Amino acid sequence: MKKTIVIVDDHILIAQALKGIIENFEDFQVLYECENGKDLQDKFQLKKPIPDIVLLDISMPIMDGFETAKWLKKLHPGILIMILSMQNDEQSVIKMIQLGINGYLLKNTSPYELEKALKQVAKEGFYYQDWASRIVFASLNNKKEEQRTIKLTDREKEFLKYTITEMNYKEIAEKMFCSPRTVESYRDSLFEKLELKTRVGLAVFALKNGFE
């Protein structure tokens, strides 16, 4: 069954071009396009189909990508968000990751990489190009001294090791001989201690700090 996508971009020609490209991908189909976040809200209220993935631009009038991502994560947390933007500055990338988006691509990416990114987001829940990953690692480096003062329990450290695997939370719970609810409590505690919101952030922290 194909994964469904909604494109949110105020440039109509770009949105239509993206739709044409994605319709050639075997595993995906575009449901509709929106001009900005407010347009997306309106279509949801009109009972338009809810997609698996939102392909989201950042710079848009009325309701930009930051506001849209925040709204989606609050009211529709099950939707995967892939940023497709011209903005590659550190502030935009870090802010979007803090909002909990699942992937970040630049608009000059190739159709091949777009398909690859969509497949990985659909399967694993995240995708970041190398340049975006470097920004994340640099940000964590800047907080290195601060992170050293954070006290983690042995079970939280054990959980961190599993965040860099392909195991889901239920499988991690089995490995740790505890319930999925307990694993979720470790995750939520780490989110609060490390000021993170996604498993991607936990995985990057785990890699950077040697929890392998």
Rank of each mutant, 00 (worst) to 15 (best):
I22G: 00
G100E: 00
G100A: 11
A132T: 03
E145F: 15
L13N: 12
A17Y: 10
T182F: 05
G20V: 11
L106M: 10
I172H: 01
R199W: 01
F211S: 11
I53N: 01
I12Y: 08
V54F: 04
M1L: 12
L190A: 04
I50R: 00
L84M: 07
N168S: 03
K47V: 12
M167G: 06
T153N: 07
F177S: 13
F191D: 08
M82K: 01
L80V: 01
M60N: 01
I97E: 00
A122L: 09
A17V: 15
Q41Y: 05
K19T: 05
E26F: 15
I7V: 05
E192T: 14
F211N: 08
Q147M: 11
K208Q: 09
M96A: 06
V121M: 05
Q120W: 10
D10Q: 02
A132K: 07
A138K: 15
L118K: 02
R134V: 13
Y112N: 12
E195W: 12
M60F: 02
T68L: 00
T165M: 08
F177E: 05
E23G: 13
K170C: 14
P61S: 09
V93P: 03
E146F: 09
M63L: 12
D10G: 04
E115R: 08
P77K: 13
A15D: 00
S185R: 15
